[in-house]
Design a protein around this nucleic acid. Structure first.
Lengths: 238, 238
DNA sequence: GTAAAGATTGAACGCCGTGTAGAAATAGAT
DNA sequence: ATCTATTTCTACACGGCGTTCAATCTTTAC
């Protein structure tokens, strides 16, 4: 059986798998998600296209693997931003998260397109995929923000009555286990926060703000400050 | 020269052009924008793929034409919604617009993807395209809403100082000509309204809400009511 | 009626993802 | 060290794609 770490074969296999994904990401970064071509990857590696099929059953399988990696990158970025933010300043946390999200999206537009847009013609993500898990992980970061902001924000969010049955069971149980004190309305707020950042970012990434506004960052900042203000959070010091 | 209406050739040409676009739209509605294939269209029309090149120089050219049509469809829908809304109820107008936007998007998800997502691998829209004009047209509808809501909403939007130089010249002049009384902050608000609807809709259309929430419509309604409330507009009667 | 202009065909080129068959290389066990 | 089983890789074929081009048929214009 295997040695200390791994059998030699498994090590080479992992290396090659990584190289395939790395080259695929590189191609995607220049030509968009649609530029991921098994033949082009194999060509760059000095292989034949068919050889990749011993590492990934499909092109879709490779795309799925890349998606998981990209989700991981985004999650780590946002989690790191949350760790570095002051723990007693909800408005500052919110702003830091919003900025980290946009910074990642602007720095990795193609990765953003991969997970939030049409990844590639005809690609269908696996149903019980890791995408759902990754989205919940991203949602958890947001939920932590909402949790610390909820004492200030609850008053403005009581209008709509939400129940746990309004959410998918996986998200509902995840929230109730991790944040027992949060009501359903807080989860709804979390999703609406997400959508609010997502809206401006997709418009920017997909070029729809280019014809309207000189500096998308300014619009984003303005909307985030408006968001913090209407949530009843104190304006951050800086 | 031509007869009363058109020369026979021009008439046939217009018919064929329409048929090409119609079949392309049909394919897109079932298989997504990536399913638009010149060969498949030609096959369905009993033609050869090359024949399409006398109607559209490119596949991208066909995509551009479809985009223009889809923009037109969306613009007419939203403009009709605006006409049918009561003219003295800013909150009701806003809500009607938001609902009309979502209804269109949910009813035409592939058209939505065509204009707001990756239309197709490698497609690059023409720079001086009609897309810009169409977006301005959609923005005008929103600006009318903002104009009628501005007396109530101005107070909450004075925080950020915007200047006309923050916007692209075409949008700035369009606004100043059509709505001389509106300040730059109103245009910024208009774009932020757009992004707010767009955020939830893209998440829904691209399937990212499916794993989180039971009924995306409820989340959308809740956010729109929150939006109307924070804008300082009276809650609509219904 | 004849010549110009437009529409269409059919074949070709070079991409692509995807399979299959067999060769080459590597692993573990004797 | 040798043998055997598994894995990796090449070579090739298939069908589909967008695109081009010379040749052909059809409509228009004079």
């Amino acid at each position: 059986m295997g040695d200390a770490t791994q059998s030699r074969r498994a090590r080479l296999r992992a290396e090659t798998t990584g190289e395939i994904k790395s080259i695929a990401l590189k191609h995607m970064a220049t030509g968009g998600p649609a530029a991921i071509s098994l033949r082009a990857i194999a060509r760059e590696m000095g292989m034949t296209a068919g050889a990749i099929y011993s590492y990934f059953t499909n092109r879709d399988d490779l795309i799925t693997a890349l998606t998981v990696d990209v989700y991981e990158s985004l999650a780590q970025t946002l989690e790191a931003s949350h760790r570095n933010a002051p723990s007693d300043d909800p408005a500052g946390q919110m702003l830091a998260h919003a900025r980290a999200y946009r910074a990642w999206a602007v720095a990795h537009p193609e990765e953003f397109r991969l997970i939030y847009g049409d990844p590639v013609p005809g690609y269908q993500p696996p149903e019980a995929g890791a995408a759902q898990e990754a989205e919940h992980r991203l949602c958890t970061v947001l939920l932590e923000l909402v949790a610390s902001a909820w004492p200030h924000a609850a008053a403005s969010q009581e209008a709509c009555d939400y129940g746990w049955s309004d959410f998918q069971p996986s998200l509902a149980t995840l929230t109730r286990e991790s944040f027992p004190d949060l009501p359903p309305a807080a989860v709804a707020l979390c999703l609406r926060l997400w959508s609010r950042m997502h809206g401006l970012l997709t418009l920017e990434i997909y070029g729809h703000l280019r014809h309207q506004v000189a500096d998308p960052a300014k619009l984003y900042e303005a909307d985030m400050h408006d968001l913090i203000r209407t949530l009843g959070l104190a304006a951050p010091q800086k």
